[in-house]
């Protein structure tokens, strides 16, 4: 790993200032960034830790729904979000492993936007709002393809606001080695309709499955999607699963998520 200066600001304002250095990179839980730096695929000159900023941590109900501070570790979301948004808590409880969940954060996951990460599906399916030090970004505008987001250089996610659905569930099928999602489907039913977001499957990153949303909005039952098919051509095909296999998983897991949501 290349060396760097490590800074740990205590406020968002100081973090924003630190991010102004050339070659600065924000560090949240580090569970993806640090392995990447070990491989010398990332070589920041200044690493700005966001884990010492108390205003970026915590889970609470507020305007627009459940507010989760961007530097809140998965384990805290798993423990504290369950009462109001059990599907989200369950998703957080299934990311990585316990040690990863102690450190990894929702903000880090969303900023990285790994195409196989779990959180993007919850954010997209919930129509959540990604709040940064500069603005509020709707989930539908935030995700822009694998490892690509609406964030500008130096922009820091500070919190995420999730509207609470009537019913929801996340079903994940593990990639057997990494334990990331080979495919994961988050289904959320709101008064205005059902949203279905899929992670892990598409070469374009997390996406909404519009046909399923329409079918499930009309009839929220696993059988409602029986007649649908998923186009395999845009799916990821790799040694863990062919394109056709992932397309199948999207449908199977959507059905299971609907059943789990009840």
């Amino acid at each position: 790993m290349h060396n760097f200066d490590f800074v740990k600001p205590a406020s968002i304002a100081d973090a924003v200032k630190a991010m102004g250095h050339d070659g600065a990179q924000a560090l949240s839980g580090g569970q993806t960034l640090i392995p990447t730096m070990k491989q010398r695929l990332a070589a920041p000159t200044v690493l700005v830790s966001l884990t010492g900023i108390s205003e970026m941590k915590g889970v609470c109900m507020g305007e627009g729904g459940l507010h989760i501070g961007a530097a809140t570790p998965h384990a805290v979301v798993a423990a504290e979000a369950g009462a109001v948004y059990p599907a989200l808590a369950a998703l957080a409880a299934g990311i990585g492993d316990p040690a990863v969940r102690s450190k990894g954060t929702i903000g880090g996951s969303l900023a990285n936007n790994d195409p196989a990460a779990c959180y993007p599906s919850a954010v997209l399916a919930s129509g959540a709002t990604v709040v940064t030090n500069r603005r509020k970004i709707a989930a539908d505008d935030y995700f822009q393809g694998m490892f690509t987001t609406a964030l500008d250089e130096g922009e820091i996610i500070t919190e995420v606001v999730f509207p609470i659905p009537q019913k929801a569930a996340y079903v994940k099928f593990n990639q057997p080695a990494s334990r990331f999602a080979l495919t994961g489907v988050f289904v959320a039913k709101y008064p205005g309709g059902v949203r279905v977001a899929v992670t892990g499957a598409s070469a374009s990153g997390v996406f909404r499955w519009a046909e399923a949303e329409a079918a499930l909005s009309a009839n929220f039952a696993a059988g409602a999607i029986a007649g649908l098919t998923v186009d395999a051509s845009g799916m990821i095909g790799d040694l863990h699963g062919t394109q056709a296999y992932r397309a199948n998983l999207v449908k199977v897991l959507t059905g299971r998520a609907v059943t789990a949501a009840g």
Binding site: F6, L27, G30, Q31, I34, P35, A75, A99, V100, K103
Partner: peptide, 29 residues
Amino acid sequence: CDTSQCGACVVHVDGKPVKSCTVFAQDVA
């Protein structure tokens, strides 16, 4: 390992399990 997978390096930091190969020392001062 170098990908935060194997868990041989797990220690507790403030009571929570973490992979010590995936945490900077200065971050847990």
